[in-house]
């Protein structure tokens, strides 16, 4: 898994910084990490830009000497929070990888249940463990960069790493998914009578779900200036129930800060 030891790379004569990177995961499906090693075409190029010192999915030797930590998953237990703080100390740049890390992801759904004991029993069965409410990484430590998505898009990770290495600024789209969906010339899901959060969700996935004829669930969280309030109204007028709408907005936790969700109904 180690890239060949090449002398330091340059771009237009500027020597590039080859950071040591490590990958960590907390409560998640590890799907995001899988995305990264899935990319055979560009994996070698990618690995020649960085030095991977810790990658759970693919290596046995590990090191604590790293500059960029990619952290997948959300924090559900106190020992996880401690481990995350340690990672924060070691890393110059801490990257939240995927929706779970950025917002709590699908995991945060359990916050909706007031009775945590009940959840513990449902989720962990006869092996009760120490489980606190689900937290996004930034609720525990400072996060420098966020890579949105469930799962993340490998092209986006590569681009972000490349930009770090080149010293370019990192521009994640501020506009919503509809922009990409229209460029992909999809039929709008609303025309088909399906709900979609594309108009308020941050683009960057190349409208993955609408491309596959499914409405957006907002896994990348809100676009900047997302008009969540009016979107909710529109969906209601189109005949979708409060429950359907909230289920979507709630799903990945990205919209949790909006007042429209704070007033949410009981479950």
């Amino acid at each position: 898994m180690k890239a060949k030891e090449s002398e330091s790379k340059t771009y237009l004569g500027i020597p590039l910084y080859r950071p040591k990177v490590a990958f960590f995961e907390f409560s998640s499906c590890e799907g995001c990490q899988l995305q990264i090693i899935n990319n055979e075409n560009t994996l070698l190029d990618f690995l020649s830009l960085v030095e991977v010192v810790n990658f759970r999915e693919a290596m046995t030797e590990k090191s604590d000497d790293y500059e960029i930590a990619f952290v997948e998953g959300s924090i559900t237990r106190n020992d996880e929070a401690e481990r995350l703080k340690k990672i924060r100390k070691n890393a110059k740049i801490l990257v939240a990888l995927g929706s779970c890390a950025c917002f709590g992801g699908v995991n945060q759904l359990k916050n909706r249940f007031n009775n945590i004991e009940w959840v513990k029993k449902q989720v962990y069965g006869k092996h009760p463990i120490d489980t606190a409410p689900v937290r996004a990484l930034e609720e525990v430590v400072n996060v420098d960069l966020r890579i949105y998505g469930c799962p993340i898009k490998k092209e986006e990770v590569e681009k972000i790493v490349l930009h770090v290495v080149l010293g370019k600024s990192i521009d994640i789209p501020k506009y919503p998914v509809c922009m990409e969906c229209k460029a992909n010339e999809n039929i709008c899901l609303f025309d088909l009578g399906e709900p979609c959060l594309g108009p308020i969700t941050r683009a960057g996935c190349d409208s993955w779900c609408p491309n596959n004829n499914a409405g957006c669930w907002g896994c990348r969280g809100p676009a900047e200036d997302a008009n969540v309030g009016y979107m909710k109204k529109i969906m209601k007028e189109k005949g979708f129930s409060e429950k359907t709408i909230l289920e979507r907005l709630d799903c990945f936790g990205g919209f949790a800060q909006f007042p429209e969700l704070k007033k949410k109904g009981k479950h």
Partner: peptide
Amino acid sequence: GDKCLACGTCANV
């Protein structure tokens, strides 16, 4: 402006 979703669809179509 209160209604607009700032989605860019109007320009794309």
